[in-house]
Simulated scan of single mutants.
Amino acid sequence: MNYDINEVKALLEDDIHLLGYETLRYSIFKGEENDREEYQVRMEKSEDSFEVYMTADRASVMGKYTFENPFDAMDQFLNIMQSRILTNRRRIRDGEPPEYSCPLWDK
């Protein structure tokens, strides 16, 4: 099924805004090699599927999920974002350095 990626992107960006996650590192439909950063959540369109993954140090790929439905991909994308917040808050609580500086855990 064909989905308008501009509509999918707008919906996902609205969810990110509503959740207050704008300061996290993320990329939506920019192309796998464009604007890559370390510890970034990414969503890309690939042929007939949607890929969601996170980059690690040196922007290497860490776990990749493939979905036929953009809404399942959006859920995974937001789940990863929440996981990064919790992980980094735990790291700071336990005296470890976070993945990067972000107001969501630099309190």
Rank of each mutant, 00 (worst) to 15 (best):
T66G: 04
P97A: 14
Q76E: 13
M1R: 11
R91H: 08
S27G: 15
D48S: 11
M54Y: 04
E13Y: 01
K64R: 14
G95M: 04
E7S: 14
I5S: 12
L19T: 02
V41P: 00
A56I: 09
E99S: 08
E22G: 06
E38P: 02
Y21H: 14
N79Q: 13
R58V: 10
R25G: 00
T66C: 11
M54F: 05
Y26Q: 02
N6L: 14
R58S: 14
E13S: 08
E13D: 14
N2C: 04
V8G: 02
L12V: 08
R42H: 03
E47T: 14
L86V: 13
E99V: 01
R58I: 05
E38G: 08
L11H: 10
Y53I: 07
K64T: 03
D14K: 15
I85A: 00
Q40D: 04
S101R: 11
V61I: 15
N2S: 10
V52L: 06
L19F: 13
D15S: 14
Y100V: 06
R89F: 03
E38I: 00
V61E: 10
I92C: 02
G95W: 02
N69R: 11
V52G: 00
R58L: 08
I92D: 04
Y3R: 01
L12G: 07
T87H: 08
V61F: 10
P98W: 00
E37Y: 05
I16S: 02
K9H: 02
R91E: 05
K45R: 15
I5N: 13
P97E: 12
F77Y: 05
D35Y: 07
W105G: 08
Y3V: 05
S49C: 12
V8N: 05
R58G: 05
D14C: 07
G63H: 12
R36V: 07
A73Q: 01
K64E: 15
E13M: 09
L18T: 11
L18P: 00
D94L: 09
E22T: 15
G95K: 02
R25D: 02
R91Q: 09
M43F: 03
M43N: 00
P103R: 12
M1S: 10
D4K: 03
Y65N: 15
V41G: 04
L18C: 07
L104E: 04
D4L: 09
E33S: 10
M81D: 07
L12T: 10
D48Q: 09
A59H: 06
P97G: 03
R89N: 08
D72P: 00
M81R: 12
